[in-house]
């Protein structure tokens, strides 16, 4: 009975996995096909056409885009970690006037959709001369209400006595923050880091608005550029580019899935 149940579960799980992952498998397979094969609607390539990848890197500066995406995502990730952890520290470990009110203000920014500020932000970034600059793609995203909230939830579980012990031992706030609070909160920092990396890597609308040339353009917009450049038949090349775009984040996700799941659920519910 158990065996039957288990086997049928495995069958169902495998079938669902195939269905869900099918688009990616199909794209992966197509990325090795010749234009001819694609047109004929083959499902598997007869020979592996690695040229598609070469072609993708030649058609657009895909390598440049890749570097841009990595750089932008890392900068935003560390920016968010620094800025949010500092704010969360103040909310948990420091006593100041208007703490509650300010926290409500922070939380309220979560309710403001990013589109609501998009138009003036575009103007601001333009006036700052940040169009086609890394600064325009990174700095506006450093402050994160979600990140502050997530870290605050975790910091609150650190016993107050730890801070008091530090105070008595003459350990200043900054040292306590750097040497105790941050190391102790490693897991939630990793969660927030993965989350931020993924969302930044996948961002679309803002980079579309603020990168008009190829210098700082990230992969997503690069992919759009490639897709609109390619003639209808070159699906293999486009799929090769898709792989370049998707694989890094898939790897990050596969490594950090457990972290992310726990961290996001905690952040959502506590």
């Amino acid at each position: 009975m158990r065996i039957v149940k288990q086997t049928s579960l495995y069958v169902v799980l495998t079938a669902l996995s195939l269905v869900l992952f099918f688009p990616m498998l199909y794209a992966f397979s197509a990325s090795f096909m010749s234009a001819q094969e694609v047109l004929l609607g083959h499902f598997l390539p007869s020979t592996l056409h690695f040229e598609n990848y070469l072609q993708a890197f030649q058609d657009v500066p895909l390598f440049r885009f890749l570097i841009n995406s990595i750089f932008i995502s890392l900068v935003v990730t560390f920016g968010v970690l620094a800025v949010s952890s500092m704010a969360a520290y103040a909310f948990v470990f420091l006593d100041f006037k208007g703490r509650k009110l300010l926290f409500v203000l922070f939380i309220s920014t979560m309710m403001i959709p990013w589109e609501a500020s998009m138009i003036p932000n575009f103007v601001t970034v333009q006036q700052l001369g940040w169009i086609n600059r890394y600064a325009g793609l990174t700095i506006p995203f450093f402050a994160s209400a979600f990140g502050t909230f997530l870290l605050r939830q975790y910091f609150k579980t650190i016993p107050k006595e730890m801070q008091e012990a530090a105070q008595i031992a003459g350990i200043g706030h900054f040292r306590f923050f750097m040497n105790v609070v941050l190391p102790v909160s490693k897991t939630s920092l990793v969660t927030l880091g993965i989350y931020t990396f993924l969302t930044t890597w996948n961002a679309y609308l803002w980079p579309l608005l603020t990168t008009t040339d190829e210098l700082v353009r990230p992969l997503q917009i690069g992919l759009r550029q490639l897709q609109s450049q390619e003639t209808v038949n070159e699906w293999g090349v486009v799929m090769a580019a898709v792989m370049v775009v998707a694989v890094p984040t898939l790897i990050v996700l596969f490594i950090g899935q457990k972290h992310l799941q726990k961290g996001l659920t905690d952040g959502a519910l506590k």
């Binding site: 917009i221 992919l223 759009r224």
Partner: peptide, 24 residues
Amino acid sequence: FFRTIFSSSMGISVAASSVVWLFI
């Protein structure tokens, strides 16, 4: 393994998946 597969689309960007579906 199955959990990872089920959550995988979270790691795929709007752009990448749209282009894949454009193909599909």
